[in-house]
Structure formats: C-alpha cells, structure tokens
Design a protein around this nucleic acid. Sequence first.
RNA 1: GGCCCGUUGGUCAAGCGGCUAAGACACCGCCCUCUCACGGCGGAAACGGGAGUUCGAUUCUCCCACGGGUCACCA
Length: 550
Amino acid sequence: MNTDCNALAELLFPDVCDTPESLEQRFPQRELQEGAVVSRMAPSPTGFVHLGNLVQGITSERLCHQSGGVLYLRVEDTDAKREVPGAVEVLIEALSHYGICFDEGATVDGDCGDYGPYRQRQRRDIYHVYAKKLVAEGKAYPCFCTEDELSAMHERQEAEKANFGYYGKWALWRDRSIEDIKAALDEGKPWVLRFYSQGFVENKIKFTDLIKGSLELTENDIDHVLLKSDGIPTYHFAHAVDDHLMRTTHVVRGDEWLPSLPFHLQLFSALGWKCPKYLHIGPLIKMDGDSKRKLSKRKDPELALTYYRSEGFPTESVYEYLMGVLNSNFEDWRRANPDAPVADFKFSYKKMNPAGSLFDYAKLCDVSKNVISRMSAQEVYEKTLQWALEYDADFGAILKDNKDIALRTFAIGRGGKKPRKDIAVWKDAKDYMGFMFSELFEVKDSYDERFDKADIKAALNAFLETYDPADSQQEWFDKIKAIGERIGFCPDMKAYKASPESYKGSVADISMFLRVAVTGKLNSPDMYEVMSILGQDEVRKRIVSMTEVL
RNA sequence: GGCCCGUUGGUCAAGCGGCUAAGACACCGCCCUCUCACGGCGGAAACGGGAGUUCGAUUCUCCCACGGGUCACCA
C-alpha cells in the first residue's frame, strides 16, 4: 500500500521538487515578543468591501497591534471566475481609509514581507508540495468524478434521505487501485484531489473558540476537495497551508465557517501541524419585515462600505460604531476619554458577543453626531467640502467659494463643554447651514397663523430701524425684547409662561419672526451669531424682502 | 432533512449561583432656553417555554420552541 501511495504521489505530482522541510526553513517561526498575535485579512478579490470585512479587520488589527504582533493581507484569489480586476487596490484603499493598515502582505504594487507570495494563485507550487505529501501518506487521493456524476449522487442521497456529500460508500474513488487511477489519467480525465477523511459522524470533538467558547462539533467524514481540477487549492487547503507557513497565530473569520471547522482541524492534524486559535464572529443582522436575517450583499446597500462614504459618514463614526458593537464598554471609555485616540482603548476579544448583532442605523447616527461634535470647525469644513466635491458638486462649489462663512458657521456652538450635535453625516450640513449662502437661501417655513401679519411686519420694521451690527449679544437681545414689548409681546419668558393669555406672544416669537425672515426656517443656530456672519447688508435685505411679501 | 450556533427591555448590550437585573440608542414627560441643538432630571420597558441540579438560578444540565448559519471543483 505504502509503495502504491508513493508511486501515486509521484504519478500525480511529478514536478514537485521542494520538500516540506525546505519550506519550514524558508518560512521560519517569527521572532516576536511573548503573546504577540499574528493574524491576517484574507479576502477574495471580488471588488466589494463590506461591513463584515471591516468588523473582521478591526478585530484582527487591534489584536495584532495591541500585542506587538503582525497583521498581513493575503489575497484569496483561488476562484478566478469571481475575481474582479483592481479589487485588491479597492480593498486596500477602503481599509486604510478606515485605519486598517497592514504590516506585510499583498500591496498595490506587489508583495511586502518574508512569508509570501501573498496571492494564493502564486503559491501553487507550495500547495503541491503538501498535496504530494498527503498522497504519499495515503491521506489524499485523486477523484475523477464529473459534475454530472456528482449531482446525480446528490439526487440519490436526497431520495435515500442520506446525508449529502462525498463520503463512505459514495466516495467512488476513495480506495481505487493505482491501475484504475493510471487508466483514468491516461484517458486524460480531469481530476481533483480529495482528502481521505478518517472521521465519523458518530464522533464528537470538543473545541474552544475564543469568541464562542467551548463547542461540541461532529467529526467530519466527508472527503472534501483539496485541489481543484486546475491544480489550485480550495479555501480549506489553502487556509491550512498558508496560515501554517505564514505563522498565523489567530484566525479571525465569520462564523459561517464554523461548520467546516472540524475539517480544518483534521487537515492541520493530517499535515502534522498545530492549528491556530480561532475567533468566529457572529454575523451582522438586519430587520427584514418581522424577521431578522444576515445582511446580504444583493439586497442591502448598507452592507457596502461605499454606502457610508457616499452618505457622508466620517470614517471615524463607522469605526467607533463598530468598535462599540464589538466591545460594548468602548462607549463608556469614549465618554470618559473624549479626545483619546482609539488605539488607547483596550480591545478584548473576551467582550465580543458570540451571537450576531443587529445593525442599528439610529445608533450609528448618534455615534456619528458625537464624533463630529468633537471635531474642530476647520476639520468639519474640510471633510464636508471633501464629501460635497465628490457627491454634491453644487454644494461643494459653494463651500469652496465661501470658506470664511462656512468656517464661522460651523464654529457656532462648537468647542465648548456642550457642543451642538446637528450633523450626523456630511449631507446634513446642507440643511443645517444652506441658508447662509445666497445660492441656497429660500424661505422654507412659514409663520404660525395665530400671529397677526401686521405685528410681524411691525416687529421686522422695528428691528430694521434699531439694528446695529456693532451691538453685543446682550444689546442685540435687549432691543428685540423692547420691540416686542412695544407691540404686546412679553419680554420675559418666565412672566410669559406664568400667564400666556395676557400677551400676544413672547420674545421667543419675536425672535422667530426674525429667524424665518433671515434663515427661512423655524429652527436655526444662534440668531445673533448667524446675523453677524451674514453681515448687515444681507440681513437687512432678507428682512426687507420678507416685509414685502407679508 | 443532517450538522452547528444563538435567545436579557423596541435596538445594542452589562451580568458570569444570591443584585431593587447596569449603561447607551430610540421613545415619552419635565427643567434650562430667543427656536433648534446641547445639557440636567425623571418615566415606561427585558432574562423565550418546561423540567432538573442547588438552600438559592438570568447565570449550570437536559428537552422544546423560535431565530440564524452551513451542507460546491465559492470563499
């Protein structure tokens, strides 16, 4: 048997010249401090970067960089059919945009690091060394089944209510003689390499996942494909070989991989390797009608990272929201350390929830308002401008041409102990401050019908008469009170609330008359500030035109 | 269908055998206040169900229900 296995290995992989030993030497153990985590992101280059990638990326990145370890990028391009040109660039760009930077691995212009190549298709020869070894040891064998045969098998299994898959009596090529194999090979039939599973579904294995805790799984009895007919490995085989040779200590991935974990464990064991620690992250869920489901690439635009960019969420907001989902104590930490860099937060996988989390848009907006409220006016201006130039060109041009006004408007109520929180996404800036620019100013709201138009007009005219841009805020406000008092509006809010029926209204209403005239809206930031930024001429012009339409 | 994971207020979540079961978002009320925003105070709101183990279960075990994931030469 053993001689047969060796002969088969030679027959299948005549060109392999490297040995497992030489590869071990080529990729030695990393010399890192005690407890250093080596992890990776291993996406397939589909051109679509989603929240799940980021969640996994943040987790890996924190674990590595908090421990003095290494984070690398490996491109899982084993499925040529799904590959999209330029996807690697898109991915690297998107992740670095969110602060995920790699220490080694695939880069835009090649590889960086001693454990490459980091693109799986370029590692073909490496996989074949181990494929040959497994065959020689009787742990893998070629299978010549066609797609049709396989699907026929699946149907029969369905009819017999048997478990699906290539195993036991269904594994047609499992114990074939070398003569049969030779014959098939001579006919030029395509073949895949399958794992010779020694597992039984009757057996349970115990395993501890760093996030899920202790698990009891069923042993794998399926002879999974190791190498596809083009000689390129499947995910499973590549995972074992790469993570071993690249000296990965922690594998962070979505929990959709949990069902194949028993197989991976078997593979590591068959190859004689210690398996890495695993962290299986629960999925991001969303409400769909009354039920929940995993966020889907096809149906949910909010899964794509580009969505947040075009909506105008600062990258920090998305990052901090996700950090809060991963480690819920992050929120408390952030409140206590409003200005500290996120890297100061002690991230722990132990705080991660084993279940999936529902994506909460309202929460994201709240986080984002807080993030933006901590920024300087300058920063808000720059980021709004950057966003607008890309997604709202007209607004972008206005911001660019009116930098001073924009900057001063963003500065209203900013920087203090209790900053305004009006903006969750850059898009909000337009509604918030559009009236500051003549191009966007329009009267959107109207006066409450309970007010007499003559009173409104009188108040506006009185304001025009007494308005002096040199007034202090107190002087300005005193004048408004006086105007109101003269026409029967209470100047003192407390007195007004005590007996509202004694007055036509209050000083708040007089302010509102001005506010609608000047900003076109019922709500706005501080009127005194707004007026001083707009300037006397513009303020007068707007009030005059309001008196004309009344 | 097989296998696996999960289940604390509307949502995110603390909790890890004994608590009046944190906190945040959203919601409601009040206060502050020239509107809004901010801030302050308060309110409503939860351990899926059933058996065990235990002096005592949200916490441990089992069963059920529900939800999710996975069963490819895709990752």
